[in-house]
Every structure is written in structure tokens, then in C-alpha cells.
Amino acid sequence: MNEQPSGISPAENATRQYATFYVKDLFFGIEVLEVQEVLRYQEMTRVPLAPQLVEGLINLRGQIVTAIDMRRRLKLAPREGAETPMNMVVRSDDGAVSLLVDEIGDVLSVRRDDYEPAPENASRDLRETITGVYKLEGKLMLVLDTERVLQAHDYV
């Protein structure tokens, strides 16, 4: 049923919660509702012939989840030898997908007022994968456009 909230309570809508993570030195956030879970590095089955961005398949309690390397997705330098990535499992219309990231951050509450669209001078690769930026104290949090990141035609 289409129920439109009428009385917008200011307290409710002004802040949003984001799960944050690092890829190299970039600080990202994904709205918590989009995140299914966060996992340590999992053993992976490689997929021969698969696009470079796909790291492999993991078994997440019986569900087969595609793992995507965010470093390659953002065209950043590969991880150094011993570092193992973390799994940020996000929900998508196509089932769960895991984003391999360097480090997991805290869940942050941010204020809507601090939001700004991506700056024009950001690199194209970056601008294409984020929807905007939150100006937090001391750092900037980039809002990942998960739908765009997972878009199928980038994986041909």
C-alpha cells in the first residue's frame, strides 16, 4: 500500500546512519540499511575468465555471494602482499554481493545538512561511483553509489 508519511518529524530525518570503511586512503560510507553484514576475509573460489573486478565466490551460509574488489573497482593500486581484505556484504536487487575493502570503520550518524554532491574536480572514476560527500569533523565521508558499483555492464 502506498503510505506517504505526512508529518515529517525533524529529529528523525535529519540524521542518517552510515556503515563506513576504507579503501586505500579513501573513506566511504554506505547507508546501514543497505548493508547485510560485515565479515572477515573468507576463503574464495576463483572464477576463471571472470572480469578482473570479480575476486571470486564465497559461501555465505549457503548463499553464493560474488565478491568484488573495491580497489580494482576504483582503479586504485592493488593491496600489498599480506593484507587481507574485509567483506562488506551489501544487499542488491540481485541478492547479496560482497565488497572487498581494506578496513571497516564505525557506524556513524551524519546530519543531512552536512551533505554535498560530489565535487566537480574529483576524478571521473570516483565521481561515477559516489553520490555525494558528507563533511564530517576532520574528514570527508564519500557516499558509495552501490547500485552503480554493481551495475552489470561494467563487468563485461
Binding site: P48, L49, A50, P51, V54, T66, D94, V97, L150
Partner: peptide, 15 residues
Amino acid sequence: LGKQLKGLTSYAGAT
């Protein structure tokens, strides 16, 4: 397989 891997004709799926 997820949509990111749909382009691969060599696989029918995974188990």
C-alpha cells in the same frame, strides 16, 4: 551466478 558474472558463457551456475 550474480549479474556481474552473467556474461560468462562457460558456467551454468555454482553450487
